[in-house]
Amino acid sequence: MAGENMSTVSAYSAMQINKEVKRTLRKERINSYFRYFVLILTGIFMLYPLAWMISASFKPNHEIFTSMSLIPKDFSWDGFINGWKTGTEYTFGRFFLNTFMYVIPKVILTVISSTIVAFGFARFEIPFKKFWFTTLIATILLPQSVLLIPQYLMFREMGMLDSYMPLYLPMAFATQGFFVFMLIQFLRGLPTDMEEAAMIDGCNSFQLLWYIIVPILKPAIISVALFQFMWSVNDFLGPLIYISSVEKYPIALALKLSIDVTEAANWNEILAMASIAIVPSIVVFLIAQNYFIEGVTAGGVKG
């Protein structure tokens, strides 16, 4: 009798449990539909301009502003072909090269100087360290445009106008406080035991930096390089101020050049070149993607 009772009870509770499980699953499913709906909608909103730009570069000029559709009615490569030629004596390839002429030194100098300065801040006792650190943070908060005029005057005195030097030379002195700060935070999160072990193993400070710190900092350093690369490629104001001859124009100025012409702008050409202009950033990002994400989170979380 008792056994029978027990089995009835357990069968009943099994039914209850089943019901409960089903209800939970249904709730979760509805939740996830809702979540995806919101995410996809937001995604479309954010990606639409980019998709529009790319699709517009395949449209003839007259179609761009007359139709909202992303699919060109008259598909044509003209935007790319004519855009590449540009209205100047140089092709767009020249402007690409020009961009790399200052972006690459800028990235390299930033990485080297920021790493050294961050290492100094994070691991050495220096007089008035707090004051210097506060100064560093203050430079992050300072709007870049405040420095434009004094910097311009300085570089004019040094005879460096219309060259790429003013664009990358300051990077040799760890002037990008944000990157230094990011690396310091990353370093602060690392235990010092490894460095002490290396010191006992016979490292001096530079060997310590080169053999131990840099390999461990690699994700953060790659993030710094990536940020600097993307920001520099997109930089408009810097080249606008210092570069005056068209033969030295980087992409950002070249795009603006096409809009400047007095006759109606060929938007399909401009948008085609703009689409090409974002390719390097995307490629570099994809290559370094894993490190980049690891670096951003590691720097943030550990700090």
């Binding site: 235990p191 035991d193 490894m194 002490e196 072990a197 010191m199 006992i200 193993d201 016979g202 690699k218």
Partner: peptide
Amino acid sequence: LAPKDRGIAMVFQNYALYPH
């Protein structure tokens, strides 16, 4: 004297191996 010139070797609590 710097640690490297003292003729010592040390084992740390958390191993302190070079991860790379």
